[in-house]
């Protein structure tokens, strides 16, 4: 376990963390402001990646594909909101779970029908295909650094948006008490729609950014959705700041756990059992973390007030 390897894994952890943040930000806002459990948030991330591949196939330009995929994600999110979600805001959490579960089933398999079950790839933009030399003999792909930078930029932008603009103020007020905000004369339906569309677009953005380094396939949104839920629950539902901290925490814990669990276990047990137990422990780590956080703070690290 050299220092450079450790540093590389920390970067990988950060990259997973900002990716989770991009997805969790929309999820926690939709959850916090509208009290709406959107299980379909993960398939919107998948859809972003697919749309980018499709648009890239048309024009062959990454930036153009990115912009078009974002717009299409936004349009699709608003369409879903209009057709399904707005009828469910007043409903039980259970109704929301089953309806969005239905949307997951539909989209996962609709994507399979349109683009096939085989994994697709999205080429990176030429300017970022290279690697940087972190230490002698230790290269690191530039694109991963781009993901980290863009995630942090989005986080900064969101921070400004939420804390320093009128719409951000309404969002914060909505996360604390949506009913009161509505009573004060704010068009809450429009606010909901804006928040929802924006959240969808962020998930789509995450999907486009990660597409060049993973394979784009049906079901790619399902596991990341669970991680995003873990993030928003640890962070405290409705809190962007909580989502950011928790996303980086989960990204680092998960990545470092997977990289070093076997090495750490070898210190206390034989190599062979360490190789089988290690990955299991690494997979469990984030759930243990969540259980501990919820045991100590049943409403997450940064609970939104008034809930």
């Amino acid at each position: 376990m050299t220092a450079t390897l450790f540093f590389v894994q920390v970067l990988n952890g950060l990259q997973l963390g900002v990716l989770l943040f991009l997805i969790a930000a929309g999820l926690t806002l939709v959850f916090g402001v509208m009290d709406f459990i959107n299980l379909a948030h993960g398939v919107q991330y998948m859809l972003g990646a697919y749309l980018a591949v499709a648009f890239y196939g048309v024009v062959g330009n990454f930036l153009f594909a990115l912009i078009m995929a974002l717009l299409a994600s936004l349009a699709f999110g608003l369409l879903l909101e209009f057709l399904v979600f707005r009828h469910l805001y007043e409903r039980d959490h259970l109704d929301q779970v089953i309806a969005t579960f239905g949307i997951i089933l539909f989209l996962n398999h609709a994507v399979r029908m349109v683009w096939g079950a085989a994994p697709l790839t999205l080429p990176m933009p030429d300017a970022f295909t290279g690697s940087v030399l972190l230490a002698p003999g230790q290269l690191y792909p530039v694109w991963r650094l781009v993901i980290i930078a863009s995630g942090i930029a989005v986080a900064g932008g969101l921070y400004l948006l939420v804390t320093h603009t009128r719409i951000g103020m309404l969002v914060r007020a909505g996360a604390t008490n949506a009913r009161m905000v509505s009573a004060l004369g704010v068009n809450i339906k429009r606010l909901f729609m804006i928040v929802f569309g924006f959240g969808t677009m962020l998930a789509g953005f995450a999907g486009v950014m990660i597409a060049p380094i993973i394979s784009v396939e049906p079901g790619m949104g399902t596991n990341i959705l669970i991680l995003a839920f873990v993030v928003i629950v640890i962070g405290g539902i409705g809190s962007i700041r909580g989502a950011f901290v928790a996303a980086l925490l989960i990204g680092l814990v998960d990545t470092l756990g997977r990289s070093f669990s076997i090495d750490v276990l070898r210190l206390v047990m034989a190599p062979s059992p360490a190789r089988t137990v290690g990955p299991a422990i690494a997979s469990i780590l984030i759930y243990v973390l969540m259980a501990i956080v919820l045991f100590l703070r049943p409403a997450g690290l940064f609970p939104a007030r008034g809930r």
Partner: peptide, 9 residues
């Protein structure tokens, strides 16, 4: 699931 999903909704 393409049929069953919308049915659930």
């Amino acid at each position: 699931q393409v049929i069953f999903g919308p049915f659930l909704v």
